[in-house]
C-alpha cells in the first residue's frame, strides 16, 4: 500500500517509501487549508504522539512503523467529493469552513465527514473522530468483521 513518509535522507526509512512521487502527492492534496499556510514547510512533519512533532529523519524505527501503519489505515477510510447535498453536513468542524462543491472529503465509520486534508492531519495525531470521540480503528475492525 502506498505508504510514503517523505524525507530527504533515504537511508533509514527506505522500507517505508512508496512509489508516489512527491509532486503527484502534493498536487493531489491541493493548496493547504488556510490555517496551515503560515506553517508550510518543505519537510513534512509527523506526530508520533500528540504534542510531538518531528521530521521523518528524526523518527525512531518504532515511530516510523506506527506512522506507516496509521497512514495505511487512513487510506482505507472512504473518501468522497462534496456534491452540494446536505447529507454529509455542510461544514468541516475542524477548520469551520463550509464545504464547497468539488472539495475532497473523508467520511469516518461514525459517518462524520470532514475536509480530507483537515481530518487526515488530525488522524495522524489521534485516531478518533473529533466530533464523537469514537475510536476509528475499533470501528474499522467492526466493519471488517461484519463484511
Amino acid at each position: 500500500m502506498g505508504n510514503c513518509l517523505k524525507a530527504q535522507s533515504n537511508d533509514d526509512i527506505s522500507l517505508l517509501r512508496g512509489h508516489d512521487s512527491q509532486d503527484s502527492v502534493e498536487q493531489a492534496l491541493g493548496p493547504p487549508p488556510p490555517y496551515q499556510e503560515h506553517v508550510q514547510q518543505r519537510m513534512p512533519v509527523y506526530h508520533p504522539a500528540p504534542n510531538v512533532s518531528r521530521t521523518a529523519s528524526q523518527l525512531t524505527e518504532e515511530e516510523q512503523i506506527k506512522i506507516a501503519k496509521r497512514l495505511g489505515l487512513i487510506s482505507h477510510l472512504p473518501t468522497g467529493i462534496y456534491d452540494g447535498s446536505s447529507k454529509k453536513g455542510k461544514e468541516c468542524v475542524i477548520c469551520m469552513g463550509d464545504f464547497a462543491v468539488g472539495e475532497p472529503l473523508r467520511i469516518l465509520p461514525c459517518m462524520h465527514s470532514y475536509h480530507k486534508d483537515c481530518i487526515d492531519d488530525w488522524l495522524m495525531r489521534s485516531f478518533t473522530c473529533p466530533s464523537c470521540m469514537e475510536p476509528v480503528d475499533a470501528a474499522l475492525l467492526t466493519t471488517y468483521e461484519t463484511s
Binding site: P50, V93, I94, W122, P130, M133
Partner: peptide, 9 residues
C-alpha cells in the same frame, strides 16, 4: 490535555 479534539472550540 489528552482529551482535546479538533472539533472543540
Amino acid at each position: 490535555k489528552d482529551q482535546w479534539a479538533a472539533a472543540m472550540t
